[in-house]
Write a protein that binds this DNA or RNA. Structure first.
Length: 516
RNA sequence: GGUCGACUAGCUCAAUGGCAGAGCAACUGACUCUUAAUCAGUGGGUUCAGGGUUCAAGUCCCUGGUCGAUCACCA
């Protein structure tokens, strides 16, 4: 049984009284001739086309939207409503409506209600485009008061928000309320949609086929992450939610689909943080006859295209921490930095001088006694440690970091002449990882050995042990064209381009603990 | 999972261990160009939950909850 607050009880009472007067507070149909922006533009155009002295053409409009503020003034009422396009002022007077209707409005209409208003566009004394209302109708009565903020417009045009909904928990749990009162949050999600649309457009235009591969999988793979496990009753078997698309997309290359991509949800059963959500949106593409250098070009062009079409610029500001803003420039070409060189420059250690984990570990603790990695890990993981500790924070401008250690890259092709290194790159910006790509391994015998090596490396670490995917190897034995593959967190890209520090700001419904 | 912090009216926030408050929102009234409208008045609280210390707890202590920051984890 719902418990109502004092404010809600007052509104429930109003609903009862409306019904008693034969007025449906939730009518089935609504009408609208103009959005707020259309009405304002129409008025402007009518005024512009008017020759001096003669009256402007009358703009009749029916608007619909949510009441965001009311200012009753005796026989007048000013109200702002908000629709999908923005806000617009309504002006109600006894002159047009009669005292009874004005009183009726004041008595029964609250902030948060949806209203339909018909009238004529005009300008108030202050010049604001306003609908002079001739009639109005309730479209949907709100029972609960919105956590409505008040906007104060200063003389210089800046808007100060008073008592805005800011509690991060309410904002995430009740995203509907957050969206209803915080216009800039809606804008984030419009941008997110536009970014995804632009990614699709770029790939479509470059001959890629959009495909959909299984989310429910009998085996998981393509990344080192713990999966979510579920169960299929009829098949009597456990299934996994995918942790990546990689192995399925590459099966399609075996099937002669030369360029494929997928944008969809990945699921990783791991910690939640300001940059991790258990489900997140991933873009992966695979391109036959390309190598990682070609993929670098595709990547910088693709992101450049997104910047141009969605934002009209390649220059962005990203505030990584409060007061610590970076200017980012996504112009091409991005800086290219070999990982060995980058680690040498930032940590003073040349990984090529340390071909074993023991030797590299010794070098790290000698050179940097205050930063001690786990001594029981592989050489690749130690390199990853150096990368994270020293190099990553310096990668502010968009940078391709390339040539990665083989043993942390089980699906990437070796660099010719260097058995410890593979043709892999990661794209960085603002000091964090944006994407990951490599020249894909297409040698079925090498791939099988890599899988077996992985099992060996992680025998004491059950969580990271990927199951050996026999069907993937079977596919590869039919022959897979040489190809370059790419993966990118779409949420991360959106964070960067919309200057949001937390992934929760770019997810409509981020994962939260169950409410109680 | 570890550490630290936050949680008070619908929203944003106050309150030396000593009567739980303000602005906005709500309610009543005044007001024919307002825009955080203004003015006069009224109501509104299990101070996250439970225990403890104390003459007295929003405040101090313990346990739990949620959120946040950070670390770990995330090749």
């Amino acid at each position: 049984m719902t418990e109502y607050t004092h404010l809600e009880k007052i509104r429930l009472q109003k609903i009862e009284e409306l019904r008693a007067e034969g007025i449906n507070p939730y009518p089935t149909r609504a009408e609208r001739t103009h959005t707020s922006a259309q009405a304002i533009t129409s008025l402007q155009m009518a005024e512009d086309s008017t020759s001096e002295g003669s009256p402007a053409q009358e703009i009749r409009a029916t608007l619909a939207g949510r009441i965001r503020a009311t200012r009753p003034m005796g026989k007048l009422v000013f109200t702002h409503i908000e629709d999908g396009d923005g806000k617009i002022q309504l002006f109600m007077r006894v002159n047009e409506l009669g005292q009874e209707k004005v009183d009726f409005f004041n008595k029964y209409y609250d902030i948060g209600d949806f209203i339909q208003a018909m009238g004529v566009m005009m300008r108030t004394r202050t010049g604001e485009a306003t609908l002079l209302v001739h009639d109005f109708k309730m479209l949907a009565k709100a029972v609960s008061p919105l956590p409505a903020a008040k906007d104060e417009t200063m003389e210089d045009g800046t808007v100060i928000r008073h008592a805005a909904l800011e509690d991060p928990e309410i904002r995430a749990r009740q995203r509907y309320a957050d969206l209803a009162v915080n216009a800039h949050i809606r804008e984030n999600f419009r941008k997110r949609a536009a970014i995804i649309k632009a990614l699709r457009a770029f790939l479509d235009d470059n001959g890629f086929l959009e495909v959909e591969t299984p989310i429910l999988q009998p085996l998981y793979g393509g990344a080192a992450a713990r999966p979510f496990i579920t169960h299929h009753n009829e098949l009597e078997q456990d299934m996994y939610l995918r942790i990546s698309f990689e192995l399925y997309l590459k099966r399609l290359l075996v099937g002669n689909l030369e360029r494929v991509y997928e944008i969809g949800r990945d699921f990783r059963n791991e910690g939640v943080s300001f940059k991790h959500n258990p489900e997140f949106t991933q873009l992966e593409f695979y391109c036959a006859y390309a190598d990682y250098l070609k993929v670098m070009e595709l990547t910088e062009n693709m992101i450049g295209y997104v910047c141009d079409t969605v934002f009209g610029t390649r220059k962005f500001t990203f505030e990584k921490e409060p007061g610590k803003a970076y200017d980012l420039d996504f112009s091409t070409p991005w800086r290219r930095l070999e990982m060995r060189q980058g680690i040498l420059e930032t940590s003073g250690i040349d990984i090529n001088n340390h071909p074993t984990a023991e030797s590299l570990f010794k070098a790290i603790v000698t050179k940097h006694p205050h930063k001690t990695p786990d001594p029981h890990v592989t050489r690749g993981k130690l390199i990853d440690f150096l990368l994270g500790e020293f190099l990553e924070p310096t990668l502010i401008q968009p940078t391709f970091l390339y040539n990665y250690p083989r043993d942390i890259s089980p699906l990437a092709k070796p660099l010719p002449g260097d058995p410890l290194t593979v043709e892999r790159f990661e794209g960085y910006a603002a000091g964090f990882e944006l994407c990951n790509a490599f020249t894909e391994l297409n040698d079925p015998l090498d791939q099988e050995q890599r899988f077996l090596d992985m099992q060996e490396d992680y025998t004491d670490d059950e969580e990271e042990k990927n199951p050996l995917d026999e069907d993937y190897l079977r596919a590869m034995r039919y022959g897979m064209p040489p190809n370059g593959g790419f993966g990118m967190g779409v949420d991360r890209l959106t964070m960067l381009l919309t200057n949001n520090r937390s992934i929760r700001e770019v997810l409509l419904f981020p994962a939260l603990r169950k409410e109680e």
